[in-house]
Design a protein around this nucleic acid. Structure first.
Length: 178
DNA sequence: GAGTTTGAAACT
DNA sequence: CAGTTTCAAACTC
């Protein structure tokens, strides 16, 4: 995996993919401690002559992600059964959580694998352009819903699914999850 | 297990 | 931004 400080050559901004690394990986390390941290590998730093700000580069935690069940056995297994999205859209639960698919997934034509890293990276960049907050793993990530028929009392509702009441940020109709 | 419903994500 | 389509999970039978 290659890190650039920006896609355009400017030295001030991180590329979408780099932002993914910066946003996503440090929380992994802080959440799962040394077990995860050992797989998060700092990489060579790129700087301009005039920019001395520290830059932290990370290699994708491929090994750690594959070993996550051993790292935190209590964590719910993430798997998917995608058929058309190549597991490179947020439709895919694994991809949405920033994780690789595993052999336990029932997906077909899966590109969310270390063996398809280039295609996966491109998908991550495109997703981050559309949803800058995607892949965040911190628990304070805000989620809202837009339910119309489920009364927010079924797992179709993201709030209900997370066991949280709907809030004023939700635009749900007939909500019974307040 | 097959078919339907649902709402987020993606697309136009 | 709004309307429509696609998608995969949740749900029902």
């Amino acid at each position: 995996m290659e890190y650039k400080t920006s896609e355009s050559g400017d030295k001030g901004e991180a590329s979408p993919f780099s932002r993914f690394c910066l946003n996503y990986l440090p929380p992994l390390a802080s959440t799962f401690g040394a077990h995860a941290a050992q797989y998060i590998i700092p990489m060579e730093v790129e700087r301009s002559d005039t920019d001395y700000s520290p830059r932290i580069l990370y290699q994708a935690p491929t090994v750690w992600l594959q070993q996550q069940p051993q790292v935190q056995p209590s964590a719910p297994r993430v798997s998917c059964g995608c058929k058309k999205s190549k597991c490179l859209k947020l439709y895919c639960e694994c991809f949405a959580k920033g994780m690789y698919c595993t052999d336990e997934c029932g997906c077909t034509n899966c590109m969310n694998r270390p063996t398809a890293e280039a295609e996966r990276k491109e998908a991550i960049e495109m997703t981050l352009e559309r949803h800058p907050g995607a892949f965040r793993v911190t628990s304070d990530t805000y989620r809202s819903c837009n339910c119309k028929k489920s009364a927010c009392r079924k797992k179709y509702c993201e709030c209900f699914q997370q066991g949280k009441p709907c809030t004023s940020h939700c635009r749900c109709e007939g909500c019974q999850n307040r």
